[in-house]
Every structure is written in structure tokens, then in C-alpha cells.
Amino acid sequence: MGEKIAEKDMVRLDELLADLGSQRGTLIPILQKSQEIFGYLPREVLVRISEKTGSPLSRIYGVVTFYSQFHLKPRGRNIVRSCQGTACHVRGAKGILSELKKELGLEGEEATTKDLGFTLETVACIGCCGLAPVIMVNDETHGRLVPDSVKGILDQYR
């Protein structure tokens, strides 16, 4: 997605594949480690994994799209998770989410800002319903939100 893949990262991928590529049952660890290297799983990386492991590309693609932990598009430097669980929903999570989208300039199905500053996701429950409505930015939780609090929170990460 416009991101140039660094040659040194491909070297790291090849080292990883030399280490794990010929072992059975290692596809998911390979994908996880590859995602650590690149931040997401670019098409070229999946093609390389397919070539070196002998796993068909279609099957790898099937695995990648099955698990929500894998990403085919570049991710932002900050991950914003907006909780849509029952408690958050009741206390206005929809409004928080639309404010997040507006503030980040995301349209439609877009999840990541053009400058790769933020990726916005929804989650079913974060596990702190007492703070509803709640969002997480990276590892930090922000609760008892109203739409007006969104900008100030995001600014801390800009």
C-alpha cells in the first residue's frame, strides 16, 4: 500500500524462513514474526513465504484473512481501539467512534490515517465496563468519555 519494503527487512525475512521455512506447522509463527518485521503483511512478503515454505499462496492468504491478528495493510504508529461492548454501547460508544473517525479524517471502511499516524479498530469488550464508554490507545485506557474528550486524547499521541 505505497509503503516501500526495505531491503534489510527482506533479508531478515529470508533469515526467518531459512530458520523455520522447512518445518511443518510453522506457518502461523512465521506470519507473526514477519508481521513484527514489517508491521503488516505485504503481498510480496506472503509470496516469499509461499515460495520458501511450499505452502500455496491461496492457503496462506486464507490463514491471514481468518485471524484478526494479521494485517494486509500498513498499520498506524498508534492503535486506537474503540469498545463497542454492551456497556459502552449503552453509554454512547457510537458517538465516540464517529468522533474518532471525524477527528482522524477516516472515511467509510478506512482504518488507517494517510500519514500512518493512527489505526482505528473496534473491539467487542475491553473488560472495564465500569469505565464505559472506553477506548484504548496502544496500551493505555481512556474511560468515561464524551465525544468532546476525543480530540484531547488523540493529541497526546500526535
Binding site: 506472503l46 491461496s58 492457503r59 492468504y61 486464507g62 484473512t65 481468518f66
Partner: peptide
């Protein structure tokens, strides 16, 4: 495609309601 031809053109992709059988990407 896989067993007869060894080509593996198709795979199950996504999950739940979004599941679809299609070629890579």
C-alpha cells in the same frame, strides 16, 4: 484444484458472514 491439479488456486478466505472461496488477494 489442489488434489487433482496441485495448483491450489482457491482457498477459504475471511470468516463468519464474510467467508468466501476465492484466489489469493
Amino acid at each position: 484444484c489442489s488434489e487433482r491439479q496441485g495448483l491450489d488456486i482457491f482457498s477459504s478466505v475471511n470468516r463468519g458472514f464474510n467467508s468466501i472461496v476465492e484466489p489469493a488477494f
